[in-house]
Design a protein around this nucleic acid. Structure first.
Length: 979
RNA sequence: GCCCCCGUAGCCCAACCGGCAGAGGCAACCGGCUUAAACCCGGUCCAGUGUGGGUUCGAGCCCCACCGGGGGCACCA
């Protein structure tokens, strides 16, 4: 998923954060003072202890993974499964923005654990991908070497944060035994077809089934073959072709983004708006190439409908719905003069009478044959100067092929040409010209449209350019200026001998015309999706090989389970073969094809040893992140993709009180940049696994949370050159308010990174303040879902809080514990319990910034006491523990507890201490505060009303005026409305 | 062009169902501590909620329009 690249990678170079507390020399401070040095000692010690003691070993209900004492979890115990989006281990190291989500999930996990849940939280690495491959190409080093070094660096940086991950459950997508199961899932998809009529356990209709059941249906004659011949008359190769065409993973000629300069196909998101490669800026061409696809479109409805079952941000659900792009309309068949038929999809069948021409995409097969001469009535502007339709269409097709999809869509001017074909409008029998134009896309609907210039702005623009007639079929409102009317209204101009829609509203007209078309076999009501099938192959080295071989018929054959995993072969060169950047006709040559000994393989697949050819593509980077959540449940278990009992315990529907009918991961935190692709692909795989009976949950991720980004200020001088942000000072002497080395600089806000010279690394902050301060600062900066600026000089506030907490328990000159066993006074007890109550609410809502504010208030109150009562200090320490775990553990131990606090119950408020003795009631006159009175919280409203009316403030404001009404909201507010 | 989110103190941010605009932090300033400075401790200062209308007894919160910032989609028939 390359989450790592979401925020620009940084240079972990020289620290430029001042040492926080020991600056300026002077006498050494007490060793018992909570300085960065002491924090570091405490933090490193506890991190080692947690590892040694297996503190975060999360027990499964069965199997090899137990807790540190060797116990399994009770299968009825509440489970809570937390995940971070899979990091890509980049070589550049982390900056302070990266850990934000990891800290947040860690805080949630530690908190839930103290609330009694069995918490599953671990972190693996999404380690296949382009950066490692590019680096390998540059250095000649194997990508595995750099990948493993990067993972080690990232592990070290993250370990220093004190994350409560189960260390036994980490893995990388590049591990051979992980690849094995990625390939296994691919074979499950390959081995399935979608039966749209089959009932599902969740009550719906349509599910994936093994292709063996499809074959059975053919054998039993329950299903007709595509050409209608009996199954028994088809030969083996024909039968395989019939089945292969219906698999959920299938090969087909697909138009792709081919980049000769890089020697590889690119995903759409790797191509810039002007149709060039993001990396290297080479031209990208559309080429039809034989590629693997996954039939995600079969799941379009379920992927859209089941968004209602899960607790995701509305924005992300909207983006997925938008991406799936379900639209309802009709498929209509137009007869083409000369014998052919042309099917179109339209969402506006009610406008059929306004269809004055048709347009097909340049790639449309209808254009493979066009009339030899222009028909009578051809308008001179339609031919664009060509002598024959053949010449015109050939020229236009060539022109369109030379433009990338992105270029075509960026240019909204209407180009095109008449094809010489005439079609018959089915509702009134009129002949209408068929054009080709690249504003119609081959990949959507049928690649052909009926053009209604009176009701569609694009068609109108085309009609203007080519002098085509415009008929309005929906009456526009008064004062309509002309052009296309796309709004609602009553249908007009829509009557033929057999059908009239005039006078109907649009919705009724749609239904009427669809019924009419269906009765005559001219069309059907249908649903179309924007979503396309998923292009699943890449011509790269550093990815999962396909577990597929080809026989002499060039048809794919799945490798049997026992031959998995198919590991990557050694090759002489990791880079794809590149071509002249503008050589559009070149063809990709995958790096895996360079090892002939590997490509050609002799196997006995049941009919004796034969020679096969391996698939030399690799899977896209998304493959490994499509199922990794299942692997956390037990990465050591290799006999099944996921153990059914573990899946039910951690992910099944109803596995804890919050989980709804969908089941799935309880909390999934990551950036919104994965809103569509990763999250859609993973949901798709999960539903396939559900259909095939491998998982009980309907959705993989029950709750999704998008954290904001941490960005930072950057400063540029008058020439626009960036200067090191850490060296900029506030300067009232210049207009901008900031200067660097005496010259005025201007502040900007942007991503943290090398290019803006504003990078700050976690290592610098650990060094200057410690991990607990760093964690606390990131959690207190603001709400988790908001992006916000990093400000190193503000970090000290969090350190001061922890220092005060430390001093509330420990004498910093002697190191002695100073708490007393006396009971707290009533005010302190009240504050404690109110704090517990509020902090619980805020923690449950993941509002850590406000939770911390409450803890600061309590902590500050304790500093004002001559002696701190132990019971209060202990509960404060427990409440701080999820946020700043190391100092909390240390204080907990100093307070006399030999056991770690990670499973200590989170404090519970005493309701008796939450009720207030008196409440301040605000007395308003006409909405303005005029007085305040102290009243009992359960005061009678009538009594309160009388008290309020008697207050001097009300009397003064009324000044003799009468009272129209009095609004009483006991016990907090009374509002007097005067006449 | 269309859709979504956000505009509260010098800065980052709170404010429950519409009910006293301030919880917390940073910065600044004053005082204490100190030979001095830093750290630390105590205190002070600081906005009427982007703008203009509307609804309401009462609006930061609801509605409309606009301005500014961020994001998504964009020839999808």
């Amino acid at each position: 998923m390359q989450t790592q690249d979401a925020q620009t990678a940084t240079d972990p170079s020289t620290p430029h954060v001042p040492a926080a507390t020991e600056a300026g020399g002077g006498p050494p401070l007490s060793p018992f003072r909570y300085t960065a040095d002491l924090a570091a000692q405490i933090e490193l010690r506890w991190q080692d202890r947690w590892d040694e003691r297996g503190t975060f070993h999360t027990p499964n209900p069965s199997g090899p993974l137990t807790d540190a004492a060797g116990e399994h979890a009770d299968s009825g115990s509440p489970s809570f499964f937390i995940m971070d989006m899979f990091p890509y281990p980049s070589g550049a190291g982390l900056h302070v923005g990266h850990p934000l989500g990891y800290i947040a999930t860690d805080v949630v996990g530690r908190h839930r654990r103290m609330c009694g849940d069995n918490v599953l939280h671990a972190l693996g690495y999404d380690a296949f991908g382009l950066p490692a491959e590019q680096y390998a190409v540059q250095t000649g080093q194997h990508p595995r070497v750099t990948t493993e070094a990067n993972i080690a660096t990232m592990r070290r940086q993250l370990r220093r944060l004190g994350l409560a991950h189960d260390p036994r459950r980490t893995f990388a997508t590049t591990d051979s035994d992980y690849v094995r199961w990625t390939q296994w899932i691919f074979l499950q998809v390959f081995g399935s077809w979608y039966d749209a009529q089959a009932p599902r356990p969740d009550g719906g209709t349509g599910r994936a089934r093994p292709v063996s059941e499809l074959v059975e249906q053919y054998e039993q004659g329950l299903r007709a073959t595509p050409d209608g011949r009996p199954w028994s008359e088809l030969d083996d190769v024909e039968r395989r072709r019939v089945v292969d065409a219906q698999r959920l993973a299938y090969m087909s000629e697909t138009p792709v983004n081919w980049c000769p300069g890089l020697g590889t196909v690119l995903a759409n998101e790797e191509v810039t708006v002007d149709g060039r490669s993001e990396r290297g800026n080479y031209p990208v061409f559309r080429r039809s190439l034989r590629q693997w696809n996954m039939r995600i479109t079969a799941y379009a409805d379920r992927l859209a409908d089941d968004l209602d079952l899960i607790d995701w941000p509305d924005k992300v659900r909207a983006m997925q719905r938008n991406w799936i792009g379900r639209s309802e309309g009709a498929q209509v068949t137009f007869e083409v003069i000369g014998g052919a038929e042309l099917g179109v999809f339209t969402t506006r069948p009610d406008t059929l009478f306004g269809a004055t021409f048709m347009v097909v995409a340049p790639e449309h097969p209808l254009l493979d044959e066009v009339p030899p001469a222009w028909p009578d009535g051809t308008h001179s502007t339609w031919t664009v100067g060509h002598a024959t339709p053949i010449a015109a269409v050939a020229a236009y097709r060539a022109e369109a092929a030379g433009r990338s999809a992105v270029e075509r869509q960026a240019d909204t001017s209407k180009s095109g040409v008449f094809t010489g074909h005439l079609a018959i409008n089915p509702v009134d029998g009129r002949p209408i010209p068929v054009f080709t134009a690249d504003y119609v896309l081959m990949g959507y609907g049928t690649g052909a449209i009926m053009a209604v210039p009176g009701g569609d702005e694009r068609d109108f623009a085309f009609a203007q350019a080519f002098e085509l007639p415009v008929v309005h079929t929906v009456a526009p409102p008064e004062g309509f200026e002309g052009g296309a009317w796309t709004g609602d209204g009553l249908v007009v101009n829509s009557t033929s001998a057999e059908l009239s829609l005039d006078g109907l509203d649009v919705a009724t007209a749609k239904a009427t015309v669809v019924e009419w078309l269906e009765a005559r076999g001219l069309g059907t009501g249908t649903v179309t999706y924007r979503l396309r099938d998923w292009l699943f192959s890449r011509q790269r080295y550093w990815g999962e090989p396909f577990p597929i071989v080809y026989d002499e018929h060039d048809l794919p054959i799945a490798l049997p389970d026992e031959l998995l995993p198919v590991d990557l072969p050694e090759v002489p060169d990791y880079s794809p073969r590149t071509f002249a950047p503008d050589d559009a006709q070149s063809t990709p040559e995958p790096p895996l094809g360079r090892n002939e000994e590997w490509v050609s393989v002799t196997l006995d697949l049941g009919d004796g040893p034969r020679t096969y050819r391996r698939d030399t593509n690799t899977m896209p980077n998304w493959a490994g992140s499509c199922w990794y959540y299942l692997n956390y449940l037990d990465p050591s278990r290799r006999d099944v993709v996921v153990d059914a009992e573990l899946e039910r315990y951690w992910m099944g529907p109803g596995h804890n009180a919050q989980t709804g009918p969908s089941g799935g991961v309880d909390l999934y935190v990551g950036g919104v940049e994965h809103a569509v692709l990763h999250l859609l692909y993973a949901r798709f795989w999960h539903k396939v696994l559900y259909d095939l009976g491998h998982v009980s949950s309907v959705e993989p991720f029950r709750t999704l949370f998008n954290q904001g980004y941490i960005q930072a200020y950057a400063y540029a001088d008058a020439r626009g050159q960036y200067v090191p942000a850490a060296e900029v000072v506030e300067d009232q002497g210049v207009a901008s308010g900031y200067s660097w080395q005496g010259q005025e600089v201007f502040r900007e806000y942007g991503k943290i990174g090398k290019s803006l010279k504003n990078s700050v690394t976690p290592d610098e902050i650990y060094e200057a303040y410690g991990a607990d301060t760093f964690r606390l600062y990131e959690m207190s900066m603001g709400p988790l879902d908001l992006s916000r600026p990093w400000e190193t000089r503000a970090v000290v506030g969090s350190q001061r809080f922890l220092q005060r907490l430390w001093r509330n328990v420990v004498d910093e000159t002697t190191g002695e514990v100073t708490v007393v066993d006396a009971e707290p006074d009533l005010a302190t007890a009240r504050l404690l319990h109110r704090t517990i109550d509020e902090v619980r609410t805020e923690m449950d809502g993941m509002r850590f910034n406000t939770a911390i504010a409450r803890l600061i208030v309590l902590n500050n109150h304790l500093t004002s006491l001559a002696q701190v009562p132990r019971t209060v200090a202990e509960r404060l320490v427990l409440m701080v523990a999820p946020l700043a775990p190391h100092i909390a553990e240390e204080l907990w131990e100093l307070l006399g507890h030999p056991q770690s606090l990670v499973r200590e119950p989170y404090p519970v408020a005493d309701p008796a201490l939450l009720v207030q003795e008196t409440v301040t009631c605000v007395v308003q006159v006409q909405g303005k505060v005029r007085d305040r009175i102290e009243v009992s919280p359960d005061i009678d409203p009538d009594e309160l009303r009388a008290l309020a009316l008697a207050t001097p403030g009300v009397q003064r404001s009324l000044d003799g005026r009468g009272i129209r009404t009095v609004i009483v909201r006991a016990p907090k507010l009374v509002n007097v409305v005067p006449d």
